[in-house]
């Protein structure tokens, strides 16, 4: 046994409890993230119920060709990128700002109250949120239209039926639902900053604002960077539920994205191979984004995944 291996075993034994604690996480990843990757071969097969994934016949790149031949593919890809941009790029700084603001709240009771209130919407399903949004924005008797009507405005606007309002509604409801929950990780990172750094900044004459700029933000910079890089992997996978439920005939041009298309063709029509092929493309594009973002981050900052 060479020395290097002996050293590794020694280190492993010394931290055995920590490794044991890591084990469930590794098992979870293997079961739910690595084993399902085998299913990607369905993208190249004509899935047959009686043959399962492995024994179904190969069809090569048939589903990929069909997808690129589909008349609506460019539109779906563009929509998906735009929704991804809204949910990832535009949304991204807001939980950071929210966490910084919460951190500055001096009254402990109010801070806890604000945190709890902001987390709660996360636990509501999109079905409930969509019903709520449809009711609030309903023409004539919806809450928003009633207020506008009382103020003398046009109370007949059917917001959910108009394409031009779709992205605003989608983004704001997404923000309302996820802002609090997404800020937790930054609050945790902030709490890990050495208090002595704040004391040192105070001695140097920094007020609260400059402490945030020079201590808090640099302290959580690596967390921000890594989460941003990872989230770029989902640029084409923004989740189907919200768009699926918010979709109406009037806003369908904006609401239709790859995820909703996958659900409609894959699950509702049993085209598993086709749906997997699209899902695979989404994953590949996400991976390319992660690699590029990581490379850029490593070139210009010291933050990177690898």
């Amino acid at each position: 046994m060479n020395r290097r291996l002996k050293k590794s075993i020694r280190i492993f034994y010394r931290f055995r409890i920590l490794y044991l604690m890591l084990l469930p996480c590794i098992v979870w990843f293997i079961i739910f993230n690595y084993v399902p990757m085998v299913g990607l071969i369905v993208a190249f097969k004509e899935f047959k119920y009686n043959m399962g994934i492995l024994r179904s016949p190969w069809v090569g790149l048939y589903y990929f060709k069909e997808f690129f031949n589909y008349y609506n593919t460019p539109h779906l890809i563009l929509n998906t990128f735009f929704v991804g941009f809204l949910k990832i790029v535009l949304f991204f700084p807001l939980p950071v700002i929210f966490a910084l603001m919460l951190n500055e709240v001096g009254i402990r009771l109010f801070k806890k109250f604000a945190q709890t209130i902001s987390y709660l919407p996360y636990f509501l399903s999109w079905v409930v949120v969509s019903a709520f949004v449809f009711r609030v924005l309903a023409p004539n008797d919806g809450l928003l239209n009633q207020i506008i009507g009382k103020l003398g405005g046009n109370s007949e606007i059917f917001y959910m039926m108009e394409k031009k309002y779709f992205y605003q509604i989608m983004f704001l409801s997404y923000l309302w639902k996820n802002l609090g929950w997404s800020s937790i990780i930054y609050l945790a990172a902030i709490s890990g900053i050495n208090p002595e750094l704040y004391e040192a900044a105070e001695v140097d004459g920094a007020n609260n604002f400059w402490k945030v700029i020079h201590v808090t933000i640099p302290g959580i910079r690596s967390t921000i960077g890594i989460i941003f890089i990872l989230s770029l992997g989902d640029i084409l996978k923004t989740g189907f539920e919200q768009n699926f439920l918010f979709r109406t005939p009037g806003n369908m041009d904006a609401a239709d994205i790859l995820d909703t298309y996958v659900i409609r063709t894959g699950l509702m029509r049993g085209q598993f191979g086709y749906a997997t092929a699209i899902g695979m493309l989404q994953g590949i594009v996400g991976l390319i984004f992660i690699i590029i973002a990581n490379k850029l981050a490593r070139m210009y900052t010291e933050v990177s995944l690898w």
Binding site: N69, F158, E162, P249, G250, R264, R269
Partner: peptide, 20 residues
């Protein structure tokens, strides 16, 4: 069928969309 069925199924949405 593979190509046409999903488009035929959009009929109701398209008609409603035209109304608005």
């Amino acid at each position: 069928e593979f190509k046409l069925k999903p488009v035929l199924d959009e009929y109701r949405d398209i008609m409603a969309k035209a109304v608005y």
